[in-house]
Design a protein around this nucleic acid. Structure first.
Lengths: 123, 123
DNA sequence: CTGCTATATTCCTGTCAAGGAATATTCCTA
DNA sequence: TAGGAATATTCCTTGACAGGAATATAGCAG
């Protein structure tokens, strides 16, 4: 998921994906249509491939790139978990939920000395 | 769209968003739950706010952050344009959708089965 | 093989952004 | 008011990453 988002969060890469939506295309044509230099196109395509967003099929000396459905499906599934947030049909529920959360978080903390905060996690 | 993707394409920021899915939370609690230091939480929240993903409401000295629906809606709308790519059902729906577009709106009658249009294939 | 076309890879450089630490700001309460 | 709690901001350093240029590789035609 993160990899998918990271791959899409780059202007030219997003443009490439948008272009590929129209169908599979060889590297040269992508660069031509998007006015990008060939090496950058290749590099971006490698990134997209590593993220699983595209796959490649060699045709003679050409490499034809094509979108893969899986990451989009995954992204959609992820977004579904937020449907409650943005789908109008849940408007009534939203109010209730919000209220509950607000109540829950109002915790009073009188002066408590903080504990040591050496906990350190990295990714 | 790009801004939304960029904002989400960072591990800790994505974690914050995931956490906020459970409801609005003050900065301190976010940091505590995700084991992040306060300044980084604040900074990430500023980024999310600039991207329109969250909004803030001051409560005493606390700042309660909350997800905003709009970007998620937009992301969903964007993904919809790729549905043809990844939704298996689309193949069956294709004909119907086209028909609906042509006819604008047909509210009432469920009508007779339509014949299949020739499926669009990429070259 | 030779050469040509299409693409990939490498090296370099500049930019940008994230984390750490310290400090500033805001707002409450006694 | 002072002081403390909660959060924001600044400065710094470092790593990642995108673009440019040059070069390497693959695969076809003759």
């Amino acid at each position: 998921m993160l990899e998918t988002l990271a791959a899409l969060a780059e202007p030219n890469r997003l443009r490439i994906v948008e272009l590929l939506r129209a169908g599979p295309q060889p590297v040269g044509e992508i660069g031509e249509r998007l006015r990008l230099r060939q090496p950058q196109v290749s590099k971006h395509l490698q990134t997209l491939k590593k993220a699983g967003l595209v796959q490649m099929e060699p045709v003679a000396q050409q490499r034809v790139y094509e979108l893969r459905p899986a990451p989009f499906r995954a992204l959609h599934a992820w977004l579904e978990r937020y449907r409650e947030l943005w789908d109008a049909r849940f408007d009534e529920l939203e109010g209730v939920i919000e209220e509950l959360k607000l109540r829950d978080q109002v915790k009073e903390r009188s002066n408590q000395p903080k504990e040591k905060k050496n906990a350190r996690r990295n990714k």
